Amino acid sequence: MGQPESVLILGGTGQAGARAAAFLRQWHPALPLTIAGRDIGRARRVADELGTATAVTTDLRRGDLGLPADHHYSAVIAALWDNHLNGLRYAQRRGLPYLSISSGLTDIAPEVVAGAHRTGAAPILLASHYCAGTVVLAALHSARPFDRIDNLRIGAVLDDQDTGGPAGRADLQRWSTATSAGMVRRDGVFTWISGPGAQADVRSVDGTVVPAQSIAILDVPSLALATDAPDVRFDFAVGESAGRRRGEPASFEVRIDIEGAGRGGAPLGTSSYLVHPAGQCPLTALGIALGTERLLGLRGDAVAQGIHTPETLLDPAYAVERMTEAGAVFIDVSGVG
């Protein structure tokens, strides 16, 4: 395979985009990267720190993104909300793989329809899951000992001081405006819930119980359809993380509870935490980098055209290996409560 053209990272100056570029540089030192942002000075600083990278300004309101016609790329990565879908259309017109992380469950319909309109175009990876799909992959890795899964529940705590930069905060506001209802799978049926039924508690890794509620998130259908579990729920809490309660920086924490049967049919239940002491950004960036690596064919077989989600392309064991390298910690609390 020859050296690919540069990877265009829209939002490459943001926290997640810049960190994803750093992961790609670490894994593939010779991979050309193009850092795109509204501030050329900031883009150049990120590019200079990476090496083998260039900086450009883009205008997401324009079909050509404001880029010169003679610029060529190997993929388009939207590390921010591609609100006009011009990043996607730019990729489709040029036959380039595309990855997005900010549409969320409530905003993916235009991306899905755009993909259907260009069935012969390159692959689209919809990674608008929590932390760009890393939580789904961690849960699937935890599900390996099960022959049957009856119930899968995710409980996430996002520190209220770790909501990301302006783009990340805008995403949270947009999603909360779109719906206050949560989506669960209950008895095999995808169901919208609200009011008291959507309320829940998430137990933090230090035992503190944080009020939460079920949210509308792509992790629910991804996990339900990947595992065939009839009951799947994702509860989300915003508050003080265990890290800050210890007087340290805001930490990232997700609890994964799975119930079902093991290989021999005996009842089996597991509970574990995925924790990162540096908050949510490293895992979001890692999800972007893993998806980009896969779309480019730098790991695994060539990706077919069409619409994909992280769990359909990425190996959970490999993803967990990368998470651990990036500082994530997995804590087994099965039987603890």
Rank of each mutant, 00 (worst) to 15 (best):
R118D: 12
S74C: 10
A216E: 00
A304L: 12
I193S: 08
A22S: 15
G115L: 09
G120Q: 12
D159H: 12
S176R: 13
P4Y: 08
G264C: 05
I193Q: 06
G95H: 11
V205P: 01
L152D: 04
L172N: 11
S241G: 14
G14Y: 01
F330Q: 10
R299V: 07
V202M: 08
R89E: 13
G95V: 04
A79V: 04
I288N: 02
A304Q: 14
D64V: 05
S251P: 05
R263Q: 11
T163F: 02
A212R: 08
V336C: 08
L152E: 06
I258E: 09
V303L: 08
F23D: 02
H141D: 15
T309Q: 07
R263I: 06
T208P: 01
S214F: 06
A278F: 10
I149T: 05
F190A: 14
G262A: 11
H308P: 08
A16G: 00
L8Q: 08
Q305N: 13
Y73K: 08
R25K: 14
Q26H: 14
W192Y: 11
G335C: 02
G165V: 07
F236V: 01
A317E: 14
E325R: 11
E321R: 12
D231N: 15
L85D: 04
T13I: 02
I149S: 09
F330C: 01
T227N: 12
A91H: 09
V112E: 12
R185H: 09
R233M: 12
R62H: 09
Q199S: 12
W81D: 07
F236T: 01
D257A: 13
G37I: 02
Y73G: 07
V210I: 15
T57K: 01
W175G: 01
L313G: 02
I101F: 03
G2K: 13
A181V: 01
S271D: 08
G264L: 13
A212Q: 02
H276K: 03
F190I: 03
A20F: 11
V254I: 14
A43K: 01
G265D: 11
P196D: 15
E5W: 06
R185T: 04
G269K: 12
G11M: 10
L105N: 00
V202F: 09
T13P: 03
T284L: 05
Y73Q: 07
L268Y: 01
H276M: 07
G262K: 04
E259Q: 13
D228P: 00
G300D: 02
Q199I: 01
A53R: 03
